[in-house]
Design a protein around this nucleic acid. Structure first.
Lengths: 339, 339
DNA sequence: ATGAAAGCGCTAACAT
DNA sequence: ATGTTAGCGCTTTCAT
């Protein structure tokens, strides 16, 4: 399995009474090398378990077969699964994946980018930090290597990206709640500097409008996608004079704390209040009641992102081509909204 | 932020009327370089935003400042958080991290190792696949680069590793259940080819013994750490003649399905049956009842693993030193066991 | 169809 | 204290 000693193309060449250049060419099926030679080289390479040194290759060609992935945090299930998907595709293409976390910080995002470029990655797949509102560093980055954004994308023209259909998430969420008979639908909104949360809110508004329900500013709970904010907002909501009868949370985390808080207040879900989340986090099906939420196909998002990047990396024609992909979410109707 | 054009130590040398070697040495504070020169070089490097090419460095020195991490799957919260911890430390030391997944498969584990070695990583941190029962590839691996194992470690002498105190997990789990008044404690055991699950079982047995409770083979449900097996075993358990009054599950996944299944059967938790898990998965606190489980300090495990590896990599003295670390788990007492 | 030779950017032994 | 030189392992003109 493991090369005992460092073995190079020169070793192969010597054994075959030829030169390194011939070996190098034979190994990559250069057209002007004889069939016989190719076979001989490959056989010997196999026998000696020879693998060309990627570092030397990298130095010589500038291509390193490495891509970088930058995410806000790796220990979020969503990002971890996306990375899993990226990995799968990258591996298939012989690329390895190096990972860095921005911890939601603009500064650390810049640092991560620098580190990646320093490592001479061939391309980058990233999801921006929530604190990132200025995109200069991204523009600069894109001039150096191909970049594919996913999920949290900057509002810039001419970027390649893969996202969920966030407008549809908002729209379908409200539509579903209305169908279930809910009339006063609150929204736990995400940070509005992130496009996806603006779109979820936009979908929410449009669905209300299309169903002749009034949009009420007081039904919007801003910046409520974490557990602590979910708790806080839910307490506020339960104490409000005109209490909503449903909650569309922009993420599962706040939806889950909502369920917990409401239940502890002795109010029934789904009959008195319905709760709907986004992301289908692990175990979403195991709360009581089970959480209605959107499956987002994280792994697929990773795979698609990697495919886009691979294309840009390997197909010279595609370099200037803008590639985008929108993944349709799938509503998982469960106990928290089924009256 | 981004180097416009490729700039090398030769460029610096030319501008300073000196040579590449001097620049190279100045940059790394070689003792026999004048203060003046060092300052001049560093200043210019700063000004031109020069960073030495790590690839060339790698080719020349064989040191690449890259470590590899191999895990069964990255989208498990446990592994994702460990990786997060590894990342933190690696980054601090200027190392980047490349990741590969074995998907629990022995073959893919070998492939991952090959890929890592092929990429010339300086060291590897890994947790073995559940299907891995033969350790030859690991022994070979350890002869080539330093390796630190975590969580799922092979039963081999002379390895460096970081693990949880799995015996204590089993022991304390049972102890806690007994204190809560449970007398017939079942165990959902993990795959016994993995050391950690053998130890949890051993701790369970010892605690029973120390408390004068009989060990009953029929109370052991083997290979029950996933959701489907959790469901299956729980159904079996509920139908057994002499029904246990508590379950110590070797992982949160089966514990959570146990809770769900028991509740749906109309049986009360914790008064009729207590349930205890291991791992403190996200949301464990939000089930009803909330799940008593062990916090395992995943991130710390990652950090410690990386620290051990860094030491082996940078301190020549430690190469032959065996380093091991055992992390003490912390019981989170919650609703599922508090009568 | 194959070989010779230069060079990617860096480091380090060996001068001086 | 600094310069010279060779070479890490590979690719790639340019020759033949």
């Amino acid at each position: 399995m493991i090369p005992k000693q460092k073995i190079t193309i020169y070793d192969l060449a010597k054994r075959l009474n030829t030169t390194a250049s011939t070996v190098s060419r034979a190994l990559k099926d250069h057209p002007r090398i004889s069939k016989k030679m190719k076979e001989a080289v490959k056989e010997l390479a196999e026998e000696l378990n020879f693998h060309p040194d990627p570092i030397a290759h990298h130095l010589r060609t500038g291509k390193g077969l490495v891509i970088g992935v930058i995410v806000p945090r790796i220990d979020r299930h969503f990002f971890a699964s996306v990375i899993g998907g990226i990995q799968n595709i990258a591996q298939q293409h012989g690329y390895s994946v190096i990972i860095s976390q921005s911890n939601e910080s603009y500064e650390k995002e810049i640092e991560s980018i620098k580190a990646m470029l320093n490592k001479k990655v061939d391309g980058i797949i990233m999801s921006i930090a929530s604190q990132t509102v200025d995109y200069k560093h991204l523009c600069q980055l894109m001039e150096v290597v191909p970049v594919v954004f996913f999920d949290r994308i900057p509002k810039l023209d001419s970027i390649d990206y893969v996202v969920n259909d966030n407008f549809q998430i908002g729209y379908k969420a409200v539509e579903h709640l209305i169908k279930q008979g809910y009339k006063k639908i609150a929204h736990y909104a995400g940070p509005q500097n992130l496009l996806q949360y603006r779109e979820r809110l936009a979908g929410y508004k449009k669905a209300l409008e299309d169903n002749n329900l009034e949009f009420r500013e007081e039904f919007i709970y801003h910046n409520t996608i974490t557990m602590p904010t979910g708790l806080e907002s839910t307490e506020k909501l339960l104490n409000s004079k005109d209490r909503p009868d449903a909650i569309f949370a922009a993420g599962d985390y706040s939806a889950i704390t909502a369920i917990d808080t409401i239940r502890k207040a002795g109010i029934n879900i789904p009959s008195e209040i319905g709760v709907l989340g986004v992301a289908n986090e692990p175990f979403a099906n195991y709360f009581s009641p089970s959480l209605t939420t959107f499956e987002l196909f994280n792994k697929k998002m990773g795979e698609k992102s990697a495919e886009l990047l691979m294309k840009k990396l390997n197909d010279p024609e595609s370099v200037d081509l803008l590639q985008t992909m929108i993944i349709e979410p799938e509503l998982q109707e469960r106990g928290s909204t089924k009256k």
